[in-house]
């Protein structure tokens, strides 16, 4: 399977804290990789560095052969790098549907001049975006919530909104930060099957998750991180079986 995301030598330190230490990692199209490791291992920092939210000290990131190094977060997103956030980061002032529309790809209404001068074009894009948002909502089982305020939606569905919002941009690589924390029941199963379908469509997926059962059920592969480094990579079973890693995980 072709390489989707390629990270080479990614390093970052804040003051004296090393959050990424020469990380090399490849994600392949259609594969789901689970990032595991104790708190503070640098998993979320890795997502921040790859998505361009935090600027690395050194290292390169490429998506489908295209170099993203040095690009701002919004350009990476437009090139197909989608992500969700551990703390959700939904837009509380917008309804569910509008939260999704912010993520719409090719939205000309973003330019003030276009908005004023080419109103017709913006209008058509708005309609297309809305159409796509409704499709994504349907796909994620959120269609009943379209016009609700995000704050009034149950927590599990809020997590889904985060994923749905990232899907609006038609990502080629999806970084999911703890999609399952605090989620159970129907939403849990929906997220699980959604991630599987997305991978089957050829998207590369990387999941940070503490729920080991979820990782084991879902991921083709696991990557163990500690102190900003990739310590081991292999099947999730083999990582769980490794006594050395378990000790690091539980901090004995």
């Amino acid at each position: 399977m072709p390489v989707s995301l390629e990270v080479r030598g990614l390093s970052k330190r804040f003051g004296g804290i090393v959050v990424a230490d020469a990380i090399d990692l490849e994600l392949r199209a259609g594969r789901i990789v689970g990032l595991i490791g104790p708190n503070g291992a640098g998993k979320t920092s890795f997502f921040n560095l790859v998505s361009g939210v935090v600027r690395p000290d050194s290292g390169t990131v490429a998506l489908e052969g295209r170099d993203l190094t040095g690009m701002k977060a919004h350009r990476r997103a437009r090139l197909g790098l989608g992500r969700t956030w551990q703390s959700l980061r939904l837009f509380p002032s917008l309804s569910v549907l509008y939260n999704l529309l912010i993520g719409a790809r090719h939205y000309p209404g973003e330019r003030l001049a276009t908005l004023i001068l080419e109103h017709g074009r913006v209008h058509r894009a708005e309609k297309a975006g809305r159409q796509r948002a409704l499709e994504v909502l349907q796909r994620t089982g959120l269609d009943g919530f379209a016009h609700r305020e995000v704050g009034s939606v149950p927590f599990g569905q809020q997590k889904l909104i985060g994923v749905a919002r990232a899907l609006m941009n038609e990502p080629r690589c999806l970084l999911l930060d703890e999609p399952m924390a605090g989620v159970e029941g129907q939403a849990y199963r929906t997220i699980q099957s959604l991630v599987r379908t997305l991978a089957a469509e050829g998207i590369s997926v990387c999941v940070v998750e503490h729920n080991v059962a979820f990782i084991r059920d879902l991921c083709d592969e696991g990557v163990f991180m500690f102190a900003g480094r990739v310590l081991a990579r292999g099947t999730v079973e083999s990582l769980i079986a490794d006594r050395r890693l378990t000790e690091l995980y539980f901090g004995t």
């Binding site: 361009g52 977060a73 919004h74 956030w85 980061r89 837009f91 002032s93």
Partner: peptide, 11 residues
């Protein structure tokens, strides 16, 4: 509301 999330959505 949230500038980081906004940027990460390609805006």
């Amino acid at each position: 509301d949230d500038e980081l999330a906004f940027a990460a959505l390609g805006r």
